[in-house]
Simulated assay, not measured.
Amino acid sequence: MYGSVMAQVAQATIGNSEFDRDTAVALRDPGVPGVYDAELSAGWTIITAVNGGYLLALLGRALGDALPHSDPFTVSAHYLTPSAPGPAVIRTETIRTGRTLSTGQASLFQYAEDGTEVERIRVLATYGDLDALPGEVRTTALPPAIPAYRDCLGPSDGPAPIPGSSAITERLNIKLDPATVGWAVGAPSGKGEVRGWFGLADGRDADPLSLLLTVDALPPTAFDLGLTGWTPTVELTTHIRCRPAPGLLRVSITTRNLAGGFLEEDAEVWDSAGRLVAQSRQLAKAPLARG
């Protein structure tokens, strides 16, 4: 099945894809390590802001360059102000390095009209070598039950749920379980569940860096609760568990508690080999508009 799906799109490769180009960072001065220039692409916007998972991948790339280990293990991000397409600077700091793990922090800044820097997002992360991890797995977790790709629904199968930019959807290959898209036709289930198949539209396979995008790329579970509109992330922690196998990913996101105007979202990402490759939890502000 995976081969037939991926044959429908141009096959980009890891390191040579739109995602890689749009998350590229450039060391500002070889004599001053840890400071990178970047350009936030308008292609990854949703409604009015740049997607939080895309931003996480951008900072993740900078940290992978700055730290002695290249694979993200755990990344915790606090989103301080909305990001907009355009130039940005990422400042990294190495906090600790060890034989198997290294820890650092990074902040992304953009520029106000008067030229001053405004911090958009701050990250604390630990990196290592995923290929050096032992192969033993003990788990009670099971991949989400999702209908076949051909039986799931994409953006072209229904009305646009919210106004504003949806540029990011053109860069993603998402097909959602019909049981979790009732909100698109005004009939949310109220369960707070969204699940489906996920890939990049150009066919690039997943890697640890793109998993940072994946955990925040599906429609928010608030839609399934009957709330539509921007659902801004306050904090997002992601765990990368292993390097994903080639092919489409299965993603499941759930919310169990909306209170005080905030909700949590728990995401699991499974690869084509049936392995749990990423997990995340985020706190987000609930939309004000009702569907």
Results as ranks from 00 to 15, higher is better:
Leu283Cys: 01
Ala201Ser: 01
Thr48Gln: 13
Pro244Ala: 15
Gly229Ile: 01
Glu39Gln: 15
Asp151Phe: 05
Glu39Leu: 11
Val251Trp: 00
Thr103Gly: 06
Val89Ala: 13
Leu263Ser: 04
Val89Ile: 10
Leu176Tyr: 13
Lys285Ser: 10
Leu101Ile: 12
Gly154Pro: 00
Ile146Ser: 08
Ala284Lys: 07
Leu80Phe: 04
Gly104Trp: 02
Gly226Arg: 07
Gly98Asp: 08
Ala77Cys: 14
Asn257Asp: 14
Thr23Gln: 08
Ser156Gly: 10
Leu211Val: 09
Gly128Trp: 02
Ala38Asn: 11
Leu108Pro: 01
Phe19Pro: 00
Ala12Phe: 01
Thr97Leu: 06
Asn173Thr: 15
Leu276Gly: 05
Asp131Pro: 02
Arg241Pro: 04
Ala222Phe: 08
Ser70Gln: 08
Ile95Met: 11
Ser156Thr: 14
Ile46Gln: 05
Gly98Tyr: 00
Leu288Glu: 12
Thr231Tyr: 02
Gly34Thr: 10
Ile46Arg: 11
Thr221Arg: 09
Leu58Asn: 14
Gly274Thr: 08
Thr238Arg: 10
Thr81Tyr: 11
Pro232Arg: 02
Gly229Thr: 01
Ala7Phe: 03
Pro68Val: 11
Ala88Asn: 07
Asp131Val: 15
Phe198Arg: 04
Phe109Glu: 15
Val277Phe: 03
Leu283Glu: 00
Cys242His: 09
Val251Pro: 01
Ala167Phe: 02
Val25Lys: 06
Ile162Tyr: 12
Thr228Val: 08
Glu93Ile: 03
Tyr2His: 01
Ala62Cys: 05
Thr254Trp: 01
Ala38Phe: 09
Pro163Ala: 00
Gly43Asp: 14
Pro143Ser: 06
Asn51Phe: 10
Leu153Thr: 09
Leu172Gln: 06
Asp114Leu: 02
Pro143Lys: 02
Gly115Ser: 12
Trp197Ser: 02
Asp71Cys: 11
Trp183Tyr: 15
Arg281Gly: 07
Pro232His: 03
Tyr149Lys: 02
Asp157Arg: 15
Ala222Lys: 03
Gly86Lys: 04
Pro246Ser: 13
Asp151Tyr: 04
Val194Pro: 00
Val35His: 06
Ile162Leu: 11
Gly291Asn: 10
Gly226His: 04
Asp207Trp: 05
Ala10Ile: 14
Thr92Glu: 01
Ala267Arg: 05
Gly135Ile: 12
Gly128Tyr: 04
